[in-house]
């Protein structure tokens, strides 16, 4: 069950060290702040949403490798998706890392690069790290402005 290599895959290490879409987004029209009270990590997600489509996404903040890589992969993945698709991806990702059954091959294919985070399932204390950016994205899409917490 417990294999560090499942958790710290190359993709994760790479995205944690060189996060994509990191920083402020000029012309953003949605944003939300996320906070993980367990570790004190904070991040903000900024979006440009036009005609119901996420045109651009970026994030900023300091966090562990899992939360940074997850945010980096997420901002990569949601660009070009409709708001509904982005929310659906959030639910799919959350299910991937929180439920008991392992993911199917089809599911992993569908999740593309996000599948690299499937290993988080085996580390319950790290699930919040992996989902922080997603909760924040979801709040930004819903225009919920109060900072979201993972607890």
């Amino acid at each position: 069950m417990f294999d560090l290599k499942d958790l710290y895959q190359e993709v994760i290490i790479d995205h944690s060290k060189r996060p994509r879409h990191f920083g402020k987004l000029a012309g953003q029209n949605r944003e939300a702040e996320g906070y993980n009270p367990l570790c004190g990590d904070r991040l903000t997600v900024e979006l440009i949403v036009e005609d119901g489509i996420v045109k651009d996404a970026a994030f900023e903040g300091a966090g562990c490798a899992i939360s940074t890589a997850s945010a980096s992969l997420m901002t990569d993945m949601v660009r070009g998706k409709t708001e509904a698709e982005a929310q659906a991806l959030f639910r799919q990702f959350q299910s991937l890392v929180t439920r008991n059954d392992p993911p199917t091959e089809d599911e992993l294919l569908e999740l593309e690069k996000l599948a690299a985070l499937a290993g988080v399932r085996a580390f319950p204390s790290r699930v919040k790290c992996a989902t922080l950016a997603w909760h924040t994205l979801s709040a930004a899409l819903d225009r919920r402005n109060a900072p979201v917490k993972t607890e």
Binding site: F2, L4, L7, Y8, L38, C39, G40, D41, G63, C64, A65, I66, F123, S125, R126, C129
Partner: peptide
């Protein structure tokens, strides 16, 4: 990050606090 340190040490059987 301390959280990652904690998880990796845990894999070695070492319990520390992070946060």
């Amino acid at each position: 990050h301390p959280h990652d340190i904690g998880t990796i040490l845990d894999g070695e059987g070492i319990a520390i606090r992070t946060g």
